[in-house]
Write a protein that binds this DNA or RNA. Structure first.
Length: 280
DNA sequence: CACGTCACCTGCGTGC
DNA sequence: TGCACGCAGGTGACGT
């Protein structure tokens, strides 16, 4: 599911306590961990994970690219939701004081000292959790954050100019730029009126500036709408009702009315307006 | 370096 | 109804 806006939304909901339970997880300590699908834990072993995370306090929750970064008293826990992951906070015990059974696709749960639990649900089992001393061990190879002002249009043009790669796969390369996925890349390219197969190094400075602006516009709108909710994966977002191109095959382009076309780029379904996004 | 292919997983919609 | 198939918000390991 989750690209930058969905991950950002989850981070905000959990740290601000805006969810169903209205309490923040910041300041809670972890009583213990339940790992139901061992491969969910990327590092260390599930056994060591459960031991080492006990009694640690959640001091902060931030986002880096598509990673959720939990700062703990001694370590950092990182969660990547991949295609179908989600996090939720709920009561751990029922009225009688018995643990409420986890759902079928819950892969891991952290029992907190306030009677609640943080649950990682992931139908497709692609998601991963890391427990490391320093978050940089996991996020070290990520490219810049697209919403940070330190990424200027000049810098962006310079790094694009250095790459003879197809634009869409490059934008989705997390070591080039952190946070874009299939949806927001299609949306940004459509807004910037650039073709996904354009060669990065051939973009003009104006193209690069327009692209960076477009990326920021679609990401910010995604965040403002609490992300995009498609099918059964991830709920609560509204951005899916405002897609310009993604998933709109055959529907009229919002700019010119030409039917949106679907193509495949880098094995990913890709949606473009052939009129607004010509290839050179 | 750039690109294609496959693998990892489960579930849903479609068409026969 | 059953069943095969293609598709899905991501990434990483290969081979060329």
């Amino acid at each position: 599911m989750p690209e930058l806006p969905e991950v950002e939304t989850i981070a905000r909901v959990l740290s601000d306590g805006k969810g169903e339970y209205q309490t923040s997880i910041i300041g809670c300590s972890i009583k213990n961990a339940q790992v139901k699908w061992a491969r969910t834990i990327a590092i260390p072993s599930p056994e060591e994970f459960s031991e080492r995370i006990k009694e640690q306090i959640i001091t902060a929750l931030t986002r880096r690219g598509k990673f959720l970064v939990f700062s703990l008293s001694r370590d950092a826990m990182l969660v990547h939701l991949r295609m179908s992951g989600d996090l939720r906070v709920e009561d751990h015990l029922d009225q009688g004081g018995e643990p409420i059974p986890l759902d079928k696709h819950d892969r891991m749960a952290l029992i907190l000292n306030n009677g609640q639990r943080l649950v990682f649900n992931d139908t497709r089992k692609f998601g991963r959790v890391w427990l490391v001393a320093d978050a940089g061990e996991v996020t070290g190879d990520l490219g810049p954050e697209p919403l940070e002002n330190s990424l200027t249009a000049e810098k962006f043009h310079k790094v694009l100019a250095a790459r003879k790669r197809q634009l869409k796969p490059l934008l989705m390369d997390q070591s080039f730029l952190a946070g874009l996925g299939n949806i927001y890349t299609d949306e940004a390219l459509h807004l910037a009126q650039l073709h996904p197969l354009a060669i990065a190094s051939e973009l003009s400075e104006g193209d690069a500036r327009r692209l960076l602006d477009a990326i920021r516009v679609v990401l910010k709108e995604g965040i403002r709408r609490n992300g995009a909710s498609i099918d059964w994966v991830y709920k609560g977002g509204d951005f899916q009702n405002h897609f310009r191109a993604y998933g709109r095959t055959g529907e009229p382009c919002p700019e010119c009315g030409t039917p949106i076309e679907r193509m495949v780029v880098g094995q990913r379904g890709t949606h473009i307006c052939p009129t607004c996004q010509p290839l050179a």
